Amino acid sequence: MLALRPNCEACDRDLPADSAEARICTFECTFCADCVNGPLGGVCPNCGGNFAVRPIRPASLLVKYPASTERVFKPRT
């Protein structure tokens, strides 16, 4: 089950569980569409993989399977 992390690792933008702007790599590194399409150039800086749109978990299942609250922030200079 996906962790549905709450923020972009690069810019710390909030990415709620229902965000259409969230992107993930195969290791669930989570970034916003702006960072993926901009400075990251479509390549995950952690693993070198590509990104996909993060699926949206139905609201009815978020009660039983909530999104993660753990924020990961790794600013890149």
Rank of each mutant, 00 (worst) to 15 (best):
residue 27 F to R: 10
residue 16 P to V: 10
residue 30 T to H: 01
residue 55 P to M: 03
residue 51 F to L: 03
residue 55 P to T: 09
residue 9 E to G: 00
residue 22 A to N: 10
residue 11 C to V: 12
residue 11 C to I: 13
residue 23 R to F: 02
residue 31 F to T: 03
residue 59 A to T: 12
residue 20 A to M: 07
residue 12 D to W: 09
residue 59 A to K: 12
residue 41 G to M: 03
residue 16 P to T: 11
residue 53 V to K: 15
residue 22 A to Y: 02
residue 7 N to E: 06
residue 29 C to N: 00
residue 47 C to H: 00
residue 64 K to A: 15
residue 36 V to K: 05
residue 13 R to K: 13
residue 7 N to L: 06
residue 56 I to D: 02
residue 62 L to Y: 01
residue 25 C to R: 02
residue 44 C to L: 06
residue 45 P to T: 05
residue 8 C to I: 03
residue 12 D to E: 12
residue 68 S to L: 02
residue 31 F to Q: 07
residue 48 G to K: 09
residue 35 C to K: 07
residue 30 T to D: 01
residue 7 N to W: 01
residue 67 A to N: 10
residue 48 G to T: 05
residue 15 L to W: 07
residue 22 A to R: 01
residue 41 G to P: 04
residue 21 E to W: 00
residue 59 A to M: 12
residue 44 C to I: 06
residue 35 C to I: 06
residue 42 G to F: 04
residue 36 V to H: 01
residue 12 D to R: 02
residue 19 S to Q: 09
residue 65 Y to V: 13
residue 24 I to M: 09
residue 34 D to L: 14
residue 46 N to W: 14
residue 59 A to D: 12
residue 16 P to Q: 13
residue 60 S to T: 13
residue 33 A to C: 09
residue 39 P to L: 11
residue 47 C to L: 06
residue 23 R to I: 04
residue 39 P to R: 12
residue 11 C to G: 08
residue 49 G to S: 08
residue 69 T to P: 05
residue 11 C to W: 08
residue 52 A to K: 15
residue 9 E to H: 01
residue 56 I to P: 05
residue 15 L to I: 12
residue 47 C to S: 03
residue 19 S to W: 03
residue 16 P to W: 04
residue 15 L to A: 09
residue 58 P to S: 03
residue 44 C to Y: 07
residue 67 A to P: 02
residue 60 S to G: 15
residue 35 C to F: 01
residue 21 E to G: 04
residue 25 C to D: 12
residue 39 P to H: 09
residue 56 I to F: 08
residue 61 L to P: 02
residue 26 T to S: 11
residue 68 S to W: 04
residue 21 E to V: 00
residue 44 C to V: 02
residue 65 Y to E: 13
